[in-house]
Amino acid sequence: MRKPERHAELDRRTRKRLVTRQKISDVATRLFMERGFDGVTIDEIANAADVGRMTVFNHFPRKEDMFFDREDEIRELAFDAVRSRSPGTSPVQALLMLAHTMVEQPSEIFPPFEETRAFVETAQASETLKARARQMRDDFTRDLAALFAGEVGDEGDGSIAYLAAALVTATWSTAFLQAHAALRRTSDSQAVKAIFLAMIDRGAVATLAALRGTALAR
């Protein structure tokens, strides 16, 4: 009878940890949006969240991690789309379909563009966040290339898989930033969606053309 009690206790600890993490993230996000990322200190976040400085670092090793706190969820969403694709669907096509689904069915992971406007503007106003975004993009490209190679079989030195991952990542990054640039100009949410998907579609066509004759194009 001891084991159920132990597992229940672990579950309570996990829930408490997740609640604390979410509280810190919510407080940090509010402060970042109000004052800019570089204008907020770790101590201010800790005080506002009513936790100790070390508690903040236990949940978020870097200040930037509090800003990009959904990165892992976005990564897994993309990777799952590749892993669970239907027979006859290439990895690039799977990610193309994911883009359309994310825009047509917004979620907490990928909300409507108008809801992320302040987030993007805050990121673009900070050199620290822009540097972190570039690092995350590079890490994502490397890991996506490894996934591509594992899904279709490594071709030679893996350079084709890396090319595919780099083209996909560049397409998504460019489409996202251009969609937000259009949102600032027009405030037309429907037009912004169309711009994003049009760029994703064109990028997919270009990527598949570059991969023609390889396993990743099939």
Rank of each mutant, 00 (worst) to 15 (best):
R184H: 08
A145I: 14
T141G: 12
A165P: 08
R184P: 00
A170I: 08
F148I: 03
L144S: 00
I160C: 00
V152G: 01
F140Y: 09
A165E: 08
S173M: 14
D143N: 05
D157G: 03
V152M: 12
A166L: 04
D138R: 07
D157Y: 01
D154S: 07
A175P: 09
E155L: 07
A182R: 14
S159E: 10
A146H: 07
V152I: 03
T174W: 14
T169V: 15
D143W: 05
A161R: 00
A181T: 07
I160R: 08
S173G: 12
A179Y: 02
A182F: 11
D154V: 11
L177A: 10
A149W: 04
A164G: 15
L163I: 07
L167V: 02
G158Q: 09
D139Q: 15
T169D: 13
G150M: 09
R184I: 00
A165M: 05
A166N: 02
L167F: 02
A166H: 05
L144M: 14
A181L: 14
T141L: 06
Q178W: 02
L147N: 10
A161K: 02
R184Q: 06
R137A: 03
G156Y: 07
Q178G: 06
I160F: 02
F148Q: 00
L147Y: 06
A181G: 08
F140H: 05
M136H: 13
Q178T: 07
R142M: 13
I160E: 01
D138Q: 09
S159L: 00
A181W: 04
G156L: 10
R137Y: 02
T171V: 15
A164N: 10
A182L: 13
A164F: 10
D138N: 09
A161I: 03
A170D: 13
A149E: 04
L163W: 06
S159G: 05
A179G: 05
L144K: 04
A181S: 15
L144C: 11
G158R: 08
A161M: 02
T174L: 07
L183S: 06
V168W: 11
A175C: 10
M136P: 08
R184K: 12
S159I: 01
A145P: 13
S159D: 11
T169N: 11
H180M: 10
A166W: 01
G153Y: 03
L144P: 10
L183D: 04
R137D: 01
L177R: 12
L167I: 05
V152S: 10
A161H: 04
A182T: 15
D139K: 13
A164Y: 13
W172M: 04
D138I: 04
G158Y: 09
A164S: 07
R184M: 00
G158S: 09
T169M: 12
R142C: 05
M136F: 15
A164W: 11
L147I: 08
L167P: 03
A179V: 03
